[in-house]
Design a protein around this nucleic acid. Structure first.
Length: 498
RNA sequence: GGGCUCGUAGCUCAGUCAGGCAGAGCGGUGGGCUCUUAACCCAUUCGCCAAGGGUUCAAAUCCCUUCGGGCCCGCCA
């Protein structure tokens, strides 16, 4: 296959010409579990970041946690008493579990830890700290001075009407702690203060620094200048005509005198089988969840192999295929997916899944691997894959690939035909102490002939007797891995049962 | 209503920007092994490139129209 240029390299080509240092910005609001859909933003940015580095450009990846955003509502996963916190900034709300510094950190920390595993190393900013440091003060004053101009841009471009009292700045009320309930009454650009009133009845004057936040569309545009952002991926919701990128572009140019960053618009990740991924329905697959069932390189690969503008249908029941695909892949997507600790596994994941279900403990697992030709491997190197496979079997595996050796005789044995019973007895009588797996496999065919039934029926009888279902792993190897006394007893009993 | 995006093999998708023999992986099938039963290896099959029209020596690719899927336009990525 012709190696076509990877999308990340195309982006690098497109922007590298300017020769300046590139700052690739990402940002997510930590209002709930950060799921793999959110990850696409950071992963996409990291892809561009690595491609730029590979092209010899100077580039920095940054991540802004929107910790100063207000809690919008009491989400389904929150206790009812969070109603009192609605409207407060996320960093000023107590953590749901009680162990984290605040609400925002509760969701941010596992996410940042996942990024580490994925070998993504952004410079991390927290929005409330940027505001408290005063980084936004000049941009805020400018926005307040240009209030009418900005309002006109928003109304023209997004075709919506702003209330008469609209302000680009939302003040944090000193009394009730909410950032969504205040109204700006005036400001002093010399002393850098704003006057405000609040729904709660409070009114006051506070310094701009640390006491409020620009509204989203203005915040975004001013951020570009403050942090020097030159490239930014964002979801297609922001890319719609009249959306925040359109207004941001004009605000950036006309108010802040700066070109907007190079946009990378990405599509959503859809979740197959478990319904649409969305916080409101409570169906989310977090990054932490995914890292339990696949190695970080594979999670990177899942996102990097697809162009940002195409949606990804993610089917957790097919992770086995994804991992096997990654193991075989040789292209640029795989190259970009590497992490520092990447381990190449020489055992197909599919096989680990099978072996794991045959084996009852780690010794017999090693034995199963040895029998299938992987005995020389250091078990340590497949340890993580084994952990992934175990979790996957428990959480996402479809019934068709699962099996379990039945401790007691399955009921369906009663439905076996006389021919099948004869065959089972035939197999049992042919099993000697030192029989090999492949001889055992051959024995099955011999038994089906002797019993006058098809090979298919013979295999089904074996699986029904041992697993209680009609299919299973390769019969000879499978039977050889079972306890010999148990196997003989089961075959004989099933053969005699009536 | 406005906008975006996708439609290529049974499945997941490259290839479309820059027109030049329609591709990959998985699955399926056959074999390796007189004998389909989840490992592994080898070989192999698979297409009205959504439909119609146009431009061109040449169209999956560019233009127009239509149909179908998904999504966005209330700070959900």
């Amino acid at each position: 296959m012709d190696e076509t240029k990877h999308w990340a390299d195309v982006i690098a080509d497109n922007v590298a010409a300017t020769g300046e240092k590139h700052i690739i910005a990402t940002g997510i609001t930590p209002s709930g579990n950060i799921h793999i859909g959110n990850l696409r933003e950071v992963m996409t940015a990291d892809g561009a970041h690595r491609a730029l580095h590979n092209a010899g450009a100077d580039a920095e990846l940054i991540y802004i946690g929107d910790t100063f955003d207000p809690l919008r509502k009491v989400y389904p996963f929150l206790p009812d008493d969070y109603a009192e916190h609605v409207g407060k900034p996320l960093h000023a709300i107590p953590c749901p579990c009680g162990n984290c510094a605040n609400y925002a950190e509760h969701y941010l920390m596992p996410f940042l830890k996942s990024l580490e595993e994925l070998d993504i190393k952004p410079t991390v900013y927290r929005a409330h700290e940027l505001y408290e440091n005063g980084d936004f003060v000049p941009a805020t004053i400018k926005a307040l001075q240009n209030r009418d101009k900005i309002a006109a841009i928003l109304e023209t471009v997004s075709k919506r009407e702003l209330p008469a009292n609209w302000s680009p700045f939302n003040v944090l009320c000193e009394s009730c702690g909410r950032i969504t309930a205040t109204e700006v009454a005036g400001f002093d650009d010399r002393r850098k203060t704003v006057d405000y009133t609040c729904d709660c009845g409070y009114a006051g004057t506070v310094p701009v620094k640390g006491n409020g936040k620009l509204t989203w569309r203005v915040d975004w545009a001013s951020r570009w200048g403050i942090l020097g952002v030159t490239i930014e991926p964002f979801g297609k919701d922001h890319a719609t005509r009249g959306g925040s990128y359109d207004t941001g572009t004009r605000i950036s140019r006309e108010i802040y005198g700066r070109e907007p960053p190079y946009p990378i618009i990405y599509e959503w990740i859809h979740l197959k089988g478990k319904g649409a991924m969305s916080s409101s329905t409570g169906v989310t697959v977090t990054i932490t969840d995914m890292l339990q069932v696949m190695p970080p390189e594979v999670l990177r690969y899942l996102i990097l192999k697809t162009k940002p503008e195409k949606h990804i249908d993610f089917d957790p029941s097919r992770i086995v295929e994804l991992i096997d695909e990654y193991d075989r892949a040789t292209g640029r997507a795989r190259e970009l997916s590497q992490t520092k600790r990447s381990l190449r596994s020489d055992i197909p994941f599919t096989h680990i899944v099978t072996a794991l279900q045959i084996a009852s403990d780690s010794d017999s697992f090693r034995e199963v691997l040895r029998r299938s030709g992987y005995g020389a491997l250091d078990l340590e190197s497949v340890k993580m894959r084994v952990k992934n496979a175990t979790n996957w079997l428990a959480l996402y595996a479809p019934e068709s690939v699962k099996f379990e050796v039945q401790e007691t005789m399955p009921h369906d044995v009663e439905k076996l035909t006389p021919g099948q019973r004869t065959g089972l007895l035939q197999i049992a009588s042919g099993i000697s102490d030192d029989i090999t797996a492949s001889d055992l496999h051959d024995l099955v065919y011999g038994a089906s002939e002797a019993a006058g039934i098809s090979g298919s029926k013979m295999f089904q009888a074996i699986y029904i007797a041992i697993l209680g279902k009609k299919s299973g792993p390769r019969a000879g190897y499978f039977m050889a891995s079972l306890d010999r006394a148990f196997l003989l007893n089961r075959l004989n009993e099933a053969g005699r049962a009536r």
